Simulated scan of single mutants.
Amino acid sequence: MTGDTVDPKGLIAEAYRIEGITPAECRSIFLDWALSVPTGVDARALVAVLLSRHGAPGHPMTTVLRDGLDEAGAPRRRGGRGGRRR
């Protein structure tokens, strides 16, 4: 633990230090980070902070963070009758 409230495990910061990291590895790291965001916390705001800190142009993690910022939406319910209808 790093004591950082935005990246408590230091996952994102470490991804930027790994030479030759692939986009797939960055997506996996981002997923691990996203799953650790506490319920009720605005993950999009945290991603924006991470981009401002680390957003190195051309780095695959920057691309993943931007995608996460663009694609993050409100969760939608998929269960029940409505989830079974096509």
Rank of each mutant, 00 (worst) to 15 (best):
R85N: 14
G79Q: 08
V6S: 13
L35N: 13
R53S: 05
R78N: 10
R66V: 00
I18W: 01
I18C: 03
G58E: 10
R84N: 05
Y16H: 07
L65R: 06
L65T: 00
E71G: 04
L46R: 09
K9M: 02
G20Y: 03
R44Y: 03
A45Q: 13
W33E: 01
P57Q: 13
T2Y: 08
D32P: 00
T62L: 09
T5R: 13
G79Y: 00
R85Y: 14
M61N: 01
A13P: 02
A13D: 13
D32L: 07
A72Y: 01
Y16T: 03
P23Q: 10
T63R: 12
D32A: 12
M61V: 00
A72Q: 09
L65H: 10
I12V: 15
F30Q: 05
D32K: 09
G80Q: 02
L50I: 04
S52K: 14
L11G: 01
T22G: 11
I18D: 04
V6Y: 11
G73S: 14
S52Q: 14
R27Q: 09
L46K: 06
F30D: 08
M61W: 00
A15Y: 08
G79E: 04
A43R: 09
G82E: 14
F30M: 12
G83V: 05
I12P: 02
G58R: 14
G73K: 15
D32H: 05
F30L: 12
V6F: 10
L35Q: 13
V41D: 02
M1T: 01
Y16E: 03
H59D: 04
W33I: 01
R81N: 04
G73R: 15
P38C: 06
T2R: 13
R76A: 12
T63A: 13
P38E: 12
A15D: 10
D67H: 11
T2D: 08
E14W: 03
H59G: 11
R84C: 05
T63N: 12
E25V: 02
L50A: 03
A34Y: 13
R27N: 06
A24V: 06
S36W: 02
G83S: 06
G20H: 07
W33G: 01
D7W: 01
I29F: 09
A56N: 03
H59L: 06
A74H: 10
P60N: 08
I21P: 05
A45H: 08
T22Q: 14
A43S: 10
T22R: 15
D7A: 03
F30Y: 15
V37G: 00
D4Q: 10
